[in-house]
């Protein structure tokens, strides 16, 4: 097993008017190739902020310290232009709310294909063909028609599938899914988890599932980490 991500002493602080809030406090963990890690904690425990900070997506008043090593590259404090060559390609993220995470004014195919244009250097037509293929792979019926639709013409589950397709286009080493099923109907949740599992297995992608719902992780996670008040309070295998 090789480590694809190892996080050391990661802390996130937010500057408020006159004070500072520490959202993540010195957490350490690592992620093996191909495994699924569940990060569990109540809301406000810092689990989302920890991963947003690794992706360089904190709000403007946020500050990160510590290390997040991908191979021998440290993602923390990296210049944005260098980081942009990594995120979306080697490490991708799916967000909690599929209703607002897609751009309402752009067609689905534009939002998908631009990833390939940027990271793989495809021309537009080739990228769009690849996008349609990927949509089919995540189980969207009539992918050609859907690719030409706007996000608001789709249901929540469909949009989350689009998000998954978008994140996996470049077959990243790591996929971070932040509460990927919370906003969805219970019936769709199980399908979505199966989809995650099968796709990340196919691509050999390591999956991080952030959730507050232990039921979600029980079936899919290899290991889990419990966070509380910005600290990683417990780690262990999911089936222990």
């Amino acid at each position: 097993m090789t480590k694809v991500l190892s996080v050391e002493d990661l802390s996130v602080t937010f500057a408020l008017h006159e004070s500072e809030v520490r959202a993540v406090n010195n957490i350490n963990f690592s992620l093996e190739a191909g495994e699924t890690l569940a990060v569990v904690g109540e809301s406000g425990s810092g689990k989302s902020q920890a991963f947003l900070s690794i992706m360089g997506l904190l709000a403007k008043n946020g500050r990160t310290s510590g290390k997040a090593m991908m191979g021998d590259i440290n993602l923390v404090g990296m210049e944005k232009s260098r980081l942009d060559r990594i995120r979306g390609k080697d490490i991708a993220m799916i967000f909690q709310d599929p209703m607002t995470s897609l751009n309402p004014s752009l067609k689905v195919k534009t939002q998908l294909s631009e990833v390939l244009v940027k990271h793989r250097g495809f021309d537009k037509a080739k990228a769009e063909r690849a996008a349609v293929e990927m949509l089919e792979r995540v189980g969207i019926p009539e992918p050609v028609k859907r690719a030409n639709a706007f996000p608001h013409e789709m249901s929540g589950g469909m949009r989350q599938r689009v998000m998954i397709a978008m994140a996996l286009l470049c077959q990243p080493k790591i996929l971070i899914a932040d509460e990927p099923t919370t906003a969805l109907d219970v019936t769709v949740q199980a399908q979505m988890l199966d989809l995650f599992k099968s796709l990340t297995d196919d691509f050999g992608t390591s999956l991080v599932i952030i959730t507050h719902d232990l039921g979600v992780v029980a079936g899919v996670a290899d290991r889990m980490m419990v966070m509380y008040g910005g600290r990683a309070v417990e780690k262990g295998t999911a089936r222990a």
Binding site: L57, K80, R85, I86, F95, E114, V115
Partner: peptide
């Protein structure tokens, strides 16, 4: 500050 701009940034598109 919207989620979809955060998504776009997460894709590494460049500012």
């Amino acid at each position: 500050g919207t989620n979809y701009v955060r998504t776009a940034r997460s894709k590494g598109l460049g500012e």
